[in-house]
């Protein structure tokens, strides 16, 4: 579903070479978990996948389309590729239901009534139906992130990218968000998750990538990733985080 070929990213202002040749192949239904020390390029890699960051070099295909081709309609690609952010990024000026309905309605994917019905169904799924008319400022971090996931789901994406979705949550709220993500994984959604939650990686991931210094150092299913790490750097990393 997603093919990445020799991806490089250098930030021109700082001349920081963050990604140094990433290649990978993600097939439908996979749950990829990307782990690694901070500064290893995990988030940049994820943000390149939906072109929130423009790759400096390399190619990305999504569903047979080369999205790094300047001719590709990026907005259209993004409608099928959801993203959940560390800082939730709910639209502060809109109520919960308006947050969820905005993109499907404005992009003419659904009529207003369809979008509303769909939003209600999704809100029920994450048990937040009573928050439909609340503003983001009235929600807890965990609630915000669950709404953010729902907002992404409202577009019926083929894949969802999660950029450290639990990193800015209070510890007692991490569980409720991971629960929604597990649910989503079980429903067959293709997911790429950057996270520090090793328990989630082990339980939900079908393949785990370890990134360090802008490269994928090692990638394996969880059993061998955690049980039998090959590279020294991964062994060191795991000894620190587990």
């Amino acid at each position: 579903m997603i093919i990445v070929e020799n991806l490089h990213k250098t930030f021109p202002t700082t001349d920081n070479h963050v990604l140094r040749g990433i290649s990978c192949h993600i097939t439908a239904g996979e749950k990829i978990v990307v782990v690694g020390p901070s500064g290893s390029g995990k988030s940049t890699f994820l943000r390149c996948l939906n072109l929130l960051e423009q790759p400096s070099e390399g190619k990305i295909w999504f569903d047979g389309t080369e999205i790094t081709d300047p001719q590709t309609d990026v907005n259209h690609v993004r409608t099928r590729m959801g993203m959940v952010f560390q800082q939730f990024n709910l639209f502060n000026n809109l109520t919960v239901i308006a947050n969820i309905m905005l993109a499907p309605v404005k992009l003419k994917i659904m009529s207003k009534s369809e979008a509303e019905a769909n939003a209600m169904k999704l809100l029920e799924r994450v048990d937040l139906l009573d928050k439909r008319d609340s503003y983001p400022s009235q929600l807890s971090g965990g609630q915000k992130q669950r709404i953010a996931i729902v907002r992404t789901l409202a577009m019926n994406p083929q894949v969802i990218l999660f950029d450290e979705p639990t990193s800015s949550l209070d510890p007692e709220m991490v569980g409720e968000v991971l629960e929604v993500m597990k649910d989503l994984a079980e429903s067959g959604m293709t997911m790429v998750v950057v996270t520090h939650e090793m328990g989630f990686a082990r339980e939900v991931g079908t393949r785990i990538m370890f990134m360090d210094e802008g490269k994928i150092v090692e990638e394996n299913p969880p059993s061998s990733f955690f049980g039998n790490p090959e590279s020294v750097r991964l062994q060191e990393f795991l000894s620190k985080v587990l």
Partner: peptide, 10 residues
């Protein structure tokens, strides 16, 4: 806020 909007395809 902008990134969230763009990531939805707006």
């Amino acid at each position: 806020q902008t990134e969230a909007g763009r990531s939805l395809g707006l």
